[in-house]
Design a protein around this nucleic acid. Structure first.
Lengths: 201, 201
DNA sequence: CTTGACATGTAACGAACGTTACATGTAACG
DNA sequence: CGTTACATGTAACGTTCGTTACATGTCAAG
């Protein structure tokens, strides 16, 4: 059975995904959920406690969704991991989560006293995760950093402009660049793509 | 002669660079500058007017610094423009400006009603600017977007970790990638890969 | 010396903030 | 029925917010 608090948390996640963090206020939040600021404090102790729990829940959901991605990936390993990750991140059901995490990231840079603690719990580090997709010989700090930055930068651009098409083409452009550089100075790799239709180039 | 308002603006810029935008409040701001909230409103009409003027001034300074960069660049055009731009952006005297502009960018994404107007005035668009450094044949939307994203993503990473060395190595890694890809398929003409289906949005 | 524009100090306004006090409702259990 | 634990409503607390009212300094021009 779901406790009242869990129900509230679910609704709170939805609200945060829509409204962001920077101007969060208890009373409008409570109004939107049909409850009262009194109740939110009652269940979460404080605004800080509320944010902690909601952001934890949010991260859990994202990890689950990522787990699904990894499962589904089994068997079609020909697809570029970076592109796969990108498609997953910009999917309608995951996009708002990333948007919120990037906001948290930036707020923590300028205001670490307030937002730092939440960020620490969210040591998501997708960069390293994507990095594991690289052949080990190419997994240098510079290359891993670059890979993460391409993702971050393109997601930022997507958030600002909403242009899914252009940002997706840009990430494919990057993949093409890596491939062509590899082609010139090949890296020991066992299984080249055998499919006649190399999707996404 | 500098009017009182201009003197104030200068001091305000310094304060904003240090404290960011998201939790700006008149009274602490006035205290830090040895003046009063009363005076700030007197000179700038409102908090919004203050932000507008200060961000305008901030942008002007950054443009001037960029002008200096372009001047100094004359004669040593062998250096990679992207690397040149990067070194300029992460220099101690420019870094805080970029940090603030990125904060503005993110805040505008989640809260366009409040921060959107300031952003519109700051249509800096360094991406396009860097794009002009590309040979014309490579100046596709995807490549320009990618270039801008690499810069954005690495700067974001620099803001979060403070690791100048690794982020700089990453941007050099990117430049190397482009060079190697060029080496394989010189700038001439290329056959386009099959169009891929991107998510609509 | 008076005037008038600019600048400033003190204090308050109404609103919103996170949080708390206190009373009340609800429902399971003895 | 009475007890008890969870849940909720109403109202207020003290603080901070952006902004304003009102009085007063400063100082060159007439």
């Amino acid at each position: 059975m779901q406790t009242r608090k869990e129900i509230l948390t679910d609704e709170l996640v939805g609200y945060l995904l829509e409204h962001g963090l920077s101007d969060l206020s208890l009373r409008p939040l409570a109004d939107a959920l049909g409850t009262s600021a009194r109740l939110l404090i009652y269940h979460f102790e404080s605004k800080e406690g509320l944010l902690t729990e909601v952001l934890d829940s949010l991260q859990t959901r994202l990890r689950q969704s990522f787990g699904n991605l990894v499962e589904r990936r089994e068997g079609r390993s020909t697809e570029r991991p970076l592109k796969l990750f990108w498609d997953w991140a910009i999917a309608d059901e995951n996009y708002p989560y990333f948007k919120l995490l990037y906001e948290l990231q930036i707020l923590a840079v300028q205001n670490p006293a307030v937002y730092g603690p939440y960020l620490q719990r969210n040591a998501s580090n997708w960069s390293e995760l994507i990095g594991t997709a690289l052949p080990e010989a190419e997994r240098t700090p510079a290359m891993v950093t670059l890979l993460g930055a391409v993702f971050d930068g393109l997601f930022l651009e997507l958030m600002s402009t909403g242009d899914r098409r252009r940002t997706t083409q840009a990430i494919q452009q990057f993949i093409r660049l890596v491939d062509e550089a590899r082609g010139k100075r090949p890296v020991a790799q066992k299984k080249t793509t055998k499919a006649s239709n190399t999707r996404g180039g």
